[in-house]
Write a protein that binds this DNA or RNA. Sequence first.
DNA 1: ACCTGAACACCGTTCAAGT
DNA 2: ACCTGAACACCGTTCAAGT
Lengths: 180, 180
Amino acid sequence: MRADARKNYTHVLTVAREVLTEQGATASLRDIARKADVGLATLYRHFPSRDALVETLLRTELDVLTDRATELEKEPPSAESLIDWFKDSVRYFQRYRGVTDLMAAAYADPQSALFTSCSRVRAAGNSLLARAQAVGVASNELDEADLFALIAAAGWMSDPPSFNDRADHLIDFIARAMLR
Amino acid sequence: MRADARKNYTHVLTVAREVLTEQGATASLRDIARKADVGLATLYRHFPSRDALVETLLRTELDVLTDRATELEKEPPSAESLIDWFKDSVRYFQRYRGVTDLMAAAYADPQSALFTSCSRVRAAGNSLLARAQAVGVASNELDEADLFALIAAAGWMSDPPSFNDRADHLIDFIARAMLR
DNA sequence: ACCTGAACACCGTTCAAGT
DNA sequence: ACCTGAACACCGTTCAAGT
């Protein structure tokens, strides 16, 4: 990548992070380009879709999340490790307001730039869930797709302003329902 | 209301119901006006906001829902009655794709035309929940706001195409978690 | 009283023209 | 190779002007 292109790329990312933090994942791409002092088409050149932009912003945290799952798998399976990871995942989905709607759509769309992220979360969750089920601490009624859906729903509930104030309580409630 | 106004009003509603059924609750209001052969400003005169339009469309079903709650209260409190009503409520939130996002926003906004609907659902759920808790069949960890949030989240999960295929299973899972 | 077209200030997306 | 302004086809919202 040419030096000027690289500079634009990283600068757009920095500005995008700020704007999405403030306005949520549905923020105007035009606005981001404007604030980055860059032509709108330049933003599109680097990030051909909203999903691609968000994916780039979330990638680092996704690595943290999957690393955490790998870490937990070194320990013996337990209810705690499943719940801990569940809550970490929900936090991942809470990174920007409204990101859960993007993820839910991407989940069903292999063309989306966020599809791979969804798959990785799903796969990481699956092994933790399977291990917990094997030792009888997690409900056998759930499979990996259910787990992903519950993470997404918990993330959705956390979006301010609606249920934000009881989100922690409800996430805990759902997490405990997965056990037994 | 003048005869021509009344005719426009009902015709817009008919067309809106079709369009929302097809395209979900975020469908273009312009498109609805166009399909109803009515000026866009005429639609706005009758329904000053998207919420007002959706509220009018949902009102009938809300009455069914609250009537059902009143009905259930005549019987002795039970886990079944709470769960049945929970599922009815989720169905109410599923009436149009994406309506749950509108409801969640309206829940925190007393200015919204949908706020009253939210409150009525919440109140109806509260009495059923309280009765079930009193006889020890529902978890004491939940209050009426939690119940509303869970209904909304369950409705959100049902939006196609993401988790649509396992929505019934997950709604059942959440419903059973509320017991005990 | 009610309706309408047009205007305003926005979107996302694409592309020919520039350096 | 990369960037840009402008164009296109849309939004939601408002309002003066018509009947």
